[in-house]
């Protein structure tokens, strides 16, 4: 029973009974459970060996390094906590809020349309989920993929609509193409959208880069994408650095399929952080 408990295979009544017993402080059973957890963890080695991409390590190390820098950064000399300073920042804040209000009034229609389309897609997905629940183990994999897609869409909607998101316009560089728009939310991530985007040649892809503020800092590789047949693209970056304060700009380059650890071409779109 200890092994089944550590495995998470006990059905609720059995699980509750064992936990109630453990709560009495039975040291012998607690030790058995602790050893069973070790035994169960060994089952991980049954998984077929697979290797991560170099890009994952690049993204992870860039995030870790940027967080280290953020924590060790001194307080900016311009910052103040005096009453006079608070009054100045309060005024500035009110002005910024007014500007934001005007912006969101102008942007409301577009956001409504996106929400409507998103909700319709969610309803379609939910109907598909309901029918898929009656199918076999193979279908369960599809269900998981659909649920994952729904979670992704919810996250994208949150990023696009939350006033806390920062908007970044990425202008095309030396090519005839509309600008792209990125919304960066400190908690939920980044959503990049583009329309009428020229298709990269062959099987090449477009890759997003985070350009650090630090002089000489290396561009941080992020997601890759190819636009659809209509030239539309959407990228969701779930785990960007927690704060955009160390990032100077976003850039998009054309790269070989699978992406690159460092840019191999000049950026086609660039947008500075406001």
């Amino acid at each position: 029973m200890y092994e089944a408990y550590a495995l998470g295979a006990l059905d609720p009544p059995e699980r509750a009974a064992l936990e109630a017993h453990l709560a009495t402080g039975c040291a012998e059973c607690a030790k058995s459970v602790a050893e069973a957890r070790w035994l169960v963890s060994q089952l991980a080695y049954l998984a077929p060996e697979a290797s991560t991409s170099d890009m994952l390590k690049g993204r992870l190390m860039q995030t870790v390094r940027s967080e280290t820098k953020s924590e060790s950064s001194p307080v900016p000399t311009g910052a103040t906590t005096t009453p006079a300073g608070i009054s100045y920042w309060l005024s500035a804040g009110v002005a910024a809020l007014l500007l934001l209000t005007l912006y969101f009034a102008w942007d409301a229609h577009r956001v409504k349309e996106e929400l409507r389309a998103s909700n319709e897609q969610n309803q379609r997905n939910e109907q598909m989920v309901a029918s898929a629940q009656n199918e076999s183990a193979v279908t369960q994999q599809k269900l998981a993929a659909m649920e994952e897609q729904m979670a992704k869409m919810h996250r994208e909607t949150a990023i696009l609509t939350d006033p806390a998101s920062v908007k970044i316009m990425l202008a095309a560089q030396k090519i005839q193409a509309p600008q792209m728009v990125a919304m960066w939310h400190a908690k939920y991530g980044i959503v990049l959208t583009g329309q009428k985007v020229p298709m990269p040649s062959g099987n090449r892809v477009l890759q997003l880069w985070l350009i650090p503020k630090a002089p000489g800092g290396k561009a941080m590789p992020s997601m890759t994408v190819r636009p659809d047949a209509n030239g539309n693209l959407v990228i969701l970056v779930s785990n960007p650095p927690a704060s955009g304060s160390d990032t100077k700009a976003l850039a998009i380059t054309e790269e070989p399929a699978g992406g690159s650890a460092a840019p191999t071409t000049t950026p086609k779109w660039v947008g500075a952080m406001s």
């Binding site: 998984a47 077929p48 060996e49 697979a50």
Partner: peptide, 12 residues
Amino acid sequence: CRIVYSLVLRIV
């Protein structure tokens, strides 16, 4: 990273 990724890929 290899064992962690292998395990996670096997699951998802």
